[in-house]
Amino acid sequence: MAQQIEMKGKVALITGAASGLGRACAVRLAEAGASLCIVDVNADQLNAAADALQSSDVQVLAHVANLANPDACTGAVAAAVNRFGRLDALCNVAGIIKMANSTDMPREQFELTMAVNLAAPWYLSQAAIPHLLENNGAIVNCASSAAFIGEAYAAAYCASKAGLVNLTKAMAMEYSKKPIRINAVAPGGMMTGIAMGMSFPPDADFDLVKRYTGLRGLVEVEDVAEIIAMLASPAGRSFHGACINVDAGITAG
């Protein structure tokens, strides 16, 4: 029998929570009763999200951090544990995408993509795992359909998300005998700030872009948030080392 998503008495840390998918995850986990540490680099939007969540009668800590900095990742976990005394779920949702011809992408954009999309989940997980082991907790990494198909002008993004999927699986194997669950979700394109801010190279061939836009349109943000919340909660008890594609068929063939 399927379990309901129930997080009363539990604490979740959600990155990228100022807007888009991260904020939707925070809303869904608040509905499930979790206390929240929401993390983002955008202070104004993060505080607005925290104010909105407070009305749902849950405890919320807004922690501003630039997750491209490894010390900021460990600091976010410490802030959550210091405030709430425990940690039950880490949802690594924060991400960025920079579109470019592979030969033209500036080094700083490549390194930032890897830092936010791949290194940050690693450092956050390193810091969180000792606390999650105490509470039979969970890590949920937000990958992308781009982890499974090549996407023109998004080589760095594809590489970072493919790395995150295999990071998820490798860590799941390492902790297969421990009381922790480690999974990933791979959404297709969603109507988020990241999508709205995408800018293609001036000479982009949109016949190539159409190959990864899908036939069924964009994925609903709330649908992805529901899967992430399920995996973060005891309802996801049977999932470990999985990556659930929520992409309206983009990777089907």
Rank of each mutant, 00 (worst) to 15 (best):
L218P: 02
G75E: 02
M99S: 12
D104T: 12
V165D: 00
I180Q: 06
L124Q: 07
A248K: 14
A80I: 04
G22P: 03
I129P: 04
E6Q: 14
A120D: 13
I182V: 10
M99V: 10
A115I: 08
S125R: 03
K178G: 02
N136W: 13
M171P: 00
V81R: 07
S55M: 07
S35T: 09
F206V: 04
E6V: 13
A159D: 11
T74Y: 03
S55P: 01
A76E: 14
D88H: 13
P70H: 05
E31W: 00
S144L: 05
A18H: 00
D88W: 10
T251H: 03
A195H: 09
P130V: 11
F239E: 10
A152C: 11
M171L: 14
L29V: 05
A52Q: 14
V81K: 08
F206R: 13
G33S: 03
A94P: 09
D247K: 04
A2D: 15
Q59V: 02
A152R: 12
L90H: 09
G236K: 07
L167D: 06
A12C: 15
Y123K: 10
D57T: 01
H63W: 13
Q109N: 15
Q45Y: 00
Q4R: 12
A170S: 15
A120T: 09
A12Y: 07
A49H: 11
T213W: 03
G217S: 02
V58I: 15
S238E: 10
K161D: 00
T251E: 08
Y123Q: 14
D71F: 04
K161M: 00
G189W: 15
K177Q: 15
F148Y: 12
L36E: 02
K210H: 07
G249D: 09
L133W: 05
E222I: 07
A49I: 01
P106E: 07
L218D: 05
M99H: 07
L61Y: 09
V246N: 05
L21F: 02
C142F: 02
G33P: 02
N245D: 02
E108V: 13
A65F: 00
I244W: 02
G193W: 00
T74N: 02
V219A: 03
H131E: 14
M105W: 09
E174M: 10
V116Q: 06
A184S: 10
R181N: 05
L46K: 10
M99I: 11
N66S: 11
H131V: 01
F84K: 09
A170C: 14
A138W: 06
M1E: 14
L164E: 06
Y157V: 08
D247W: 03
M173F: 13
R237T: 04
